[in-house]
Design a protein around this nucleic acid. Structure first.
Length: 298
DNA sequence: GGAATTTGACCCAG
DNA sequence: CTGGGTCAAATTCC
């Protein structure tokens, strides 16, 4: 049963990537001015195509990320699963100490699983996270943020580290440690999500994991979707790093979407604006080779 | 007042 | 000894 679901998702992801590939090709034509009539580049069309490309990648990532158990060797290097030795959690030997003595009393855990992801914005995994630390990392321009599952008190060991990529601040590197054992407890919105069917796959996990814009800053979010991590908006990770923004990242740069209103002031947005469209163009052009094996699916 | 975040201190592994 | 991961008191927000 699972295999069927997983392969379906992968097929959908591939379809999305192919669609993005097509859009990228069209974009190249548009920007090169080699469109239908050979006229100069059409900025509106280019915008639309860039949005399509970004949307395509976003959907694809979502599809793949929602199936972390799918065969990792097929995951194009986006996710890296690593089996590490399991070790008991740090709590055990601290239980009987005083509060003061307990301070810093822990064993550094070597988590059993480590998954690394990189994306234009932190990937939402549909879980709720609580930030428990932030650390300046040596030789790193951006601090590393530490999150643990909100349901840790119920024994969920999942944690994640999020850090902006120094060489490419647009990218966020998320390292997941451990698996969630709280699956049945979170994410009612996955079921309740009201977004239109056509885009529902993109907005499944609107609320959870990452710095989520507060309701007043992001009025398009219903209050029920912003319960646990609203305040993360204010931290050094910009509002647009939320899963929501990740999911609608194509709107960040090209502001013809109503949703953009609440996001346009984010720092990430300005970073996006710094991205030369031609970079996108050439990047996507280089994808030809990558996509080649998939073209048979069409 | 409860819940979440911030942040300096603490501890461990290398 | 140092860097990184975690703790927990203080602070902030709703």
């Amino acid at each position: 049963m699972d295999n069927l679901g997983v392969s379906t998702s992968r097929m959908k992801a591939i379809e999305e990537l192919l669609r993005g590939h097509d859009c990228a090709k069209q974009l190249r034509s548009v920007i090169n001015g080699s469109g239908e009539n050979g006229s100069s580049a059409n900025p509106l069309l280019a915008k639309k195509l860039v949005k399509e490309v970004l949307m395509s990648f976003t959907k694809s990532l979502l599809l793949l990320n929602n199936n972390p158990t799918s065969e990792s060797h097929d995951d194009s290097g986006v996710q890296v699963w690593d089996s590490l030795k399991h070790e008991d959690s740090q709590e055990s030997n601290c239980k009987n100490s005083t509060v003061k003595a307990r301070r810093g009393c822990y064993k550094r855990s070597r988590m059993e699983q480590l998954r690394e992801e990189e994306s234009e914005a932190p990937i939402d995994d549909g879980h709720q996270w609580r930030k428990y630390g932030q650390k300046e990392i040596l030789n790193a321009k951006f601090p590393r943020n530490y999150y643990r599952c909100t349901h840790r008190d119920q024994g969920c060991p999942a944690k994640k580290q999020v850090q902006r990529v120094q060489e490419d601040p647009i990218l966020y590197k998320t390292i997941y440690h451990g698996d969630h054992t709280c699956k049945s407890l979170e994410n009612p919105q996955i079921i309740l999500d009201p977004v239109s069917p056509s885009s529902s796959s993109m907005f499944l996990s609107f609320n959870s994991s990452f710095p989520t814009p507060s309701e007043q800053e992001c009025p398009f979010l219903s209050s029920s979707f912003t319960s646990s991590v609203k305040r993360e908006c204010k931290e050094e990770v910009p509002p647009s790093t939320s899963s929501n923004d990740y999911l609608i990242s194509s709107d960040l740069t090209f502001d013809d979407s109503p949703r953009h209103v609440t996001l346009s002031s984010s720092t990430l947005d300005s970073e996006y604006k710094g991205v030369d469209i031609s970079d996108v163009l050439y990047d996507s052009a280089q994808l030809d080779d990558v996509f080649e094996p998939f073209l048979e699916f069409r």
